[in-house]
Simulated scan of single mutants.
Amino acid sequence: MKSRSVQHLHSINVQDEYGTPKELFQNICKKYQIYPQIDICASHINHVLPNYITKEQNCFNYEIKQDFFMNPPYSRVSEFMEFAYSQHIKHNVSCLILTYSKTGTKWWHKYVQDKADNVEFQKGRISFLDENGNRTKHCAPYDSVWIVLKRK
């Protein structure tokens, strides 16, 4: 029998966009005193803020000039991290990122290590929200991390 993470690697190209539970988002915002204004990796059902950008709208087509949150799809984390970091630097905005925790990756060392203001490893695996806004049957196959980049 294949492990859950191996099964996930197979299915990641089929569906890897999940919603963030709002209570987790609200708790981390309060803890780190960060209050994003726009959710840049959202759907019409799964968004944690009233102001959001959907996959169809494509956040890469925007200049993000306000504090933002993103929970990027696993299959494109590197490209989203590059975008988030560039917007943070270019527009001096704060960003809160929720992604999987893989500290040996190139993107971690390029955009997080020695650059993030706060890094919090999520205790336990998150049960994300499916495309209908319901908790998924299984928890995430990887550990998760919150990354905070604050404006200077």
Rank of each mutant, 00 (worst) to 15 (best):
Y35M: 08
I97Q: 04
V145L: 03
Q33W: 00
Q15W: 14
K90H: 14
A140G: 04
V148E: 01
Q37L: 13
F128W: 12
A116T: 01
N71M: 09
W146L: 07
R151L: 07
V93T: 13
K152I: 08
D114H: 11
F121I: 15
S5M: 11
S3T: 11
Q87L: 07
F128Y: 10
V48R: 06
S11W: 05
H88A: 07
R151C: 08
N27M: 08
A84L: 04
S86M: 14
F69I: 00
T136A: 04
I97N: 05
P141L: 01
N118A: 15
K137C: 01
H8I: 00
P50M: 07
M81C: 07
D16A: 09
A84K: 01
V77N: 05
Q57P: 04
T99N: 06
C139Y: 09
I34L: 13
C59N: 03
V145T: 04
E120R: 05
Q87F: 08
Q113S: 13
N58M: 09
F128H: 02
Y18I: 02
V148P: 01
N13I: 08
K22Y: 13
E17I: 11
L98E: 01
D67P: 03
D67L: 01
K137Y: 13
N46V: 02
T105G: 02
Y32I: 05
N71L: 10
K55T: 11
L129W: 09
I34V: 15
V112F: 02
F128N: 03
S144Q: 02
S5I: 14
F60P: 00
I97Y: 06
G124H: 06
S3F: 08
K30V: 10
L96Q: 12
H138Y: 14
C59W: 00
K30P: 01
K137N: 12
Q113F: 14
H138A: 14
F60R: 02
E131H: 11
V48M: 04
R125H: 05
N92K: 15
I97S: 03
S94W: 00
S78K: 11
